[in-house]
Design a protein around this nucleic acid. Structure first.
Lengths: 339, 339
DNA sequence: ATAACCGACGTAAGCGCTTCCGGCCCAGTA
DNA sequence: TACTGGGCCGGAAGCGCTTACGTCGGTTAT
C-alpha cells in the first residue's frame, strides 16, 4: 500500500494525496476528507525513508547520552523517565526517537556518524561533556540541540534542567526552619552545572537567612557514594560539627547517613540530612531520606517542546534556558514529621 | 558529499562505489581500496534514508518496552544497561536503535505505526504483554523479534533472559549451606516468565536437598515493595516461621527486611533474606542485601546477536531461547561473611 | 468585454542510494 | 582460431515520497 495506490483508489494524483495528508492548504476540504478517510481505512502508512529522502526532514530526533556519566550510580538518573517524557511529546508531533549513546570504547565517535547519516531534526543531550571535539562538532551543525541538566552554548541550542539553585535553597530553608543553624553541604563535581548551581543555592540561602558561611562546611564530593561517606566523616570530625547537612546527590546522601551512624551518631538526632534526586533507594533506606525530587518526565516533554521551537525559530541568537520546578520530599532523615 | 561526487572523484561510477563500500564481491581489490580510502578521507557518509529506500533494509532495530511495566520500581530494571549492551553490539553491525516505548495513553498503538513506517530489521521487546492485539500484530509480521525476560512464541522469534531457575536454586542452596532448613519464598506475579521460573527453581532446589516443601512458605508478591512487606509479615506470623526467605525481587526484599525489623526481628539473625536483581538500593540499605545479579548488559548484546541470527536464518521453526548465567552477590542479609 | 488572478489539482523532476542487466576484456577451452 | 566464461564495471531503472511548476476552470477587477 503505497501512495500511488492510495491515489488511484481515491481518484486523485499522488501529489494531492501527499498534500492532503501533510496538511497543505492547496487541497479542497472535501478532497482532503475523502483521502484522509480512505487512508485510515486502508491503514496507509507513509514510508519514513522515502519521506525523509524527499523532504530532507527526518521527523527523528536523537538522544545523545554518555553511558559513563558521573551520576553516582549504575543508573543514569531516571533515563527511563526522561525517555517517557520525550516520547510522549514526540509522538504528539509524529516524531521518532533514535538513540545515540556514547558507548565506551568510543569507536571514532560513532554517534557523530549516526547523527549525520540520519538527517536528524534535533538532538537531546544528557550527561555528555560538551567540550569534546565530537560534541562540539555536533553543536556546530545546523541541527538544533538541547541539553538536559547541561548548559549548552552555541546557536540553535537551549538547555532544560531543574532550578537547582532554588531547590538547594529550599533544602537549606527546610533545615533552617527545623531549627538548624550549623548547616553544611557536600557538593557534586563543581564543573557540572547542576552541582555548581546547588552549591550556589546553598550559599544564597545561608546569606538570605543571615547564617554564617563557613568554608569548612563546604566539602567536595563527586556524586558517588564513597565521597558522601568521606565527606560526612570529615564534617563530623570538625571541632564544631554541623547539625545538618545538605548533600547534593542521593547516592552520597545515603552513604553519608551510614557514615554518621557508623561513627555513633543518629540521623536525624545528631545530624539531619537532606539529599537531592529522590532515587528509588531514598524511600527504601532507614531513616527515609528527605530529598529534592526532580520531574524528569517533564525534562523530556520540555526538551521536545524546546526543540520544536528551535527548529521553527529563525536562528535564535542567545541560547534559551528553561528551569523546571522541583519538589521537596520530606522523610525522616531531616527530623521533620511534617508532610 | 554524496555518492555521485565520491564516484566522480574516484573515477568510477556510483554503482561501483556502492558495491565497494558494501563489500560486494564484484569489485577489484585495488578499486575497492582506492574508494574506501577516499571515502574515509572525504568523510563520506551514505544517507541512511536513501539506502533504506533503495535496499529495503533499514539497519534499524526497534526497542519496544512498556513504560508501565510491573517492575516494582520507577526504574525499569536496568533499562540503561540493556541499552548500552544493545548499542555496543549494534554499532559493531552498523545498526541503529530506535525507541518504540508504549506510552500510557496508548495512542492507537503508535508503536505499531512506527514499526511499519521505519522498515525495521528487528525488534527487541522488554516488559510488554505479548497478548495484546498490537504486540501480536507485530509478532505476526515478518520482522524478527526477540523478547527480553519474556517468552515469545511465533516464527522468527527468540527469547533471552537470565537462567532464573538456576539462579533461584543458587539462592536456596546458599541459604541451605548456611544451615537454614525452613526456607520460604515471596514470589513475583506468576504470569510473568521470570517470576514463574524463580519459583520453579526454589522448589527444585528444596527437592534436591530433600527439604520439605510447605505451601504456606510460598507467598505471592507482585514485585512491588508493599507486597514484600506484607509477605514477610505473613511468614513471620506462621506457627512455624521460616528462618530464611528467598524474595524474588529486590524491591520486595528490602521492604521485607524492614517489615521484619519493624516487628522486632533482626536480619539476618532471626530471619535471613536473599533477593533478586541487585538493584542499586541493595548495596545501600543496612544490612546489605544478598541478592542475585543479572548481567543486563549482556542481555543487550545477546539480543542483538540473536536478532542477527534470526534475520540470517531461513524461517526458523522453533523459537530459540538463550539463558544467561547470573551471579550471587553475598552481602550481610543472608548472614554469611564469606565472599 | 478582456485581463488578471486564484484555488485546486496534475505532471514530472528529483532526493541519494541499490541493483538488475548488460557490455567489455582477458583468460581458458575446444 | 573461434568460442565460452568469468571478473569488473557502467547505465539506468527504480525505491516511495515531496514539491517546484504548469494547467485549467472560475472569480473578480478594469
Amino acid at each position: 500500500m503505497d501512495i500511488d495506490e492510495l491515489a488511484r483508489r481515491s481518484g486523485v494524483s499522488a501529489a494531492t494525496v501527499s498534500r492532503a495528508l501533510n496538511g497543505r492548504p492547496e487541497v479542497s476540504a472535501a478532497t482532503r476528507a475523502r483521502i484522509v478517510a480512505l487512508a485510515a481505512e486502508l491503514g496507509y502508512r507513509p514510508n519514513a525513508s522515502a519521506r525523509t529522502l524527499a523532504s530532507r526532514r527526518s521527523e527523528l530526533i536523537g538522544l545523545l547520552w554518555d553511558t559513563d556519566y558521573r551520576s553516582g550510580g549504575r543508573q543514569h538518573p531516571f533515563l527511563q523517565e526522561v525517555l517517557i517524557g520525550l516520547k510522549a511529546a514526540l509522538s504528539d508531533r509524529g516524531q521518532g526517537l533514535i538513540l545515540l549513546p556514547i558507548v565506551p570504547p568510543d569507536d571514532e565517535a560513532g554517534y557523530v556518524r549516526l547523527a549525520r547519516q540520519y538527517t536528524l531534526d534535533g538532538i537531546v543531550m544528557m550527561g555528555v561533556d560538551q567540550h569534546t571535539p565530537q560534541v562540539r562538532a555536533l553543536l556546530a551543525t545546523p541541527i538544533p540541540c538541547v541539553g538536559l541538566d547541561l548548559a549548552l552554548d552555541g546557536p540553535r541550542t537551549a538547555s532544560v534542567g531543574s532550578d537547582n539553585r532554588t531547590a538547594a535553597a529550599d533544602a537549606v530553608a527546610h533545615l533552617h526552619a527545623l531549627g538548624h543553624r550549623r548547616i553544611a553541604t557536600i557538593t557534586g563535581p563543581l564543573d557540572l552545572w547542576p552541582a555548581a548551581e546547588r552549591l550556589a543555592g546553598y550559599r544564597a540561602e545561608l546569606a538570605r537567612r543571615r547564617l554564617r558561611r563557613r568554608p569548612e562546611y563546604e566539602v567536595a564530593g563527586d556524586f558517588f557514594a564513597a565521597s558522601g561517606a568521606a565527606g560526612m566523616r570529615r564534617l563530623l570530625d570538625l571541632p564544631s560539627p554541623p547539625t545538618a547537612v545538605f548533600v547534593a546527590g542521593d547516592a552520597m546522601a545515603v552513604a553519608a547517613m551510614q557514615a554518621a551512624t557508623d561513627t555513633g551518631r543518629t540521623v536525624p538526632g545528631d545530624v539531619a540530612v537532606v539529599g537531592f534526586d529522590d532515587i528509588d533507594a531514598a524511600a527504601m533506606v532507614r531513616p527515609g531520606l528527605t530529598t529534592i525530587a526532580q520531574d524528569y518526565r517533564r525534562f523530556g516533554t520540555t526538551a521536545a517542546a524546546v526543540l520544536a521551537e528551535l527548529a521553527a525559530a529563525p536562528t535564535t541568537d542567545e541560547p534559551r534556558s528553561v528551569l523546571l520546578p522541583t519538589r521537596l520530599v520530606v522523610r525522616e532523615s531531616s527530623g521533620s514529621t511534617a508532610i
